[in-house]
């Protein structure tokens, strides 16, 4: 039983780390601030959620895992707000969106 939990934990941790890496690559690869915000919001949210899920499997069902789930909830609530605040300011400040030629 503990083996299965550990395998699941490692799987989800690796998946989360992969998504966070892809998110970071996206922040560097996308052409302008708006597209970069896409990468920072969506990919990293799922990355952190998977990472936390892996930690939940690692600790088992306890107060600590409930706190970890709270972390995931707050991250998924705040990351779209942060991206919204950044892109809104960028738009009002006159940052030109990149367009396909």
């Amino acid at each position: 039983m503990e083996l299965i939990a550990n395998v699941l934990a490692v799987f989800f941790l690796l998946a989360g780390v992969t998504f966070m890496l892809v998110g970071s690559i996206g922040i560097n690869r996308f052409p302008d601030v708006y597209c970069r915000a896409h990468a920072a919001t969506k990919v990293d949210t799922l990355g952190i959620m998977l990472f936390v899920l892996g930690l939940v499997f690692f600790t088992g069902l306890s107060i600590t895992s409930l706190k970890l789930i709270l972390v995931a909830i707050f991250v998924s609530l705040t990351s779209p707000v942060a991206a919204h605040a950044l892109t809104r300011r960028a738009l009002l400040h006159g940052v030109k969106p990149w367009t396909k030629k």
């Binding site: 892809v22 998110g23 996206g26 302008d32 896409h38 990468a39 969506k42 990919v43 799922l46 367009t99």
Partner: peptide, 19 residues
């Protein structure tokens, strides 16, 4: 959405058309 944006990120030609 995470899978979708990850796909766009890792695609060599990056097929985006922002609007």
């Amino acid at each position: 959405s995470a899978f979708f944006v990850a796909y766009l990120t890792l695609h060599p030609k990056m097929p985006i058309n922002p609007m």
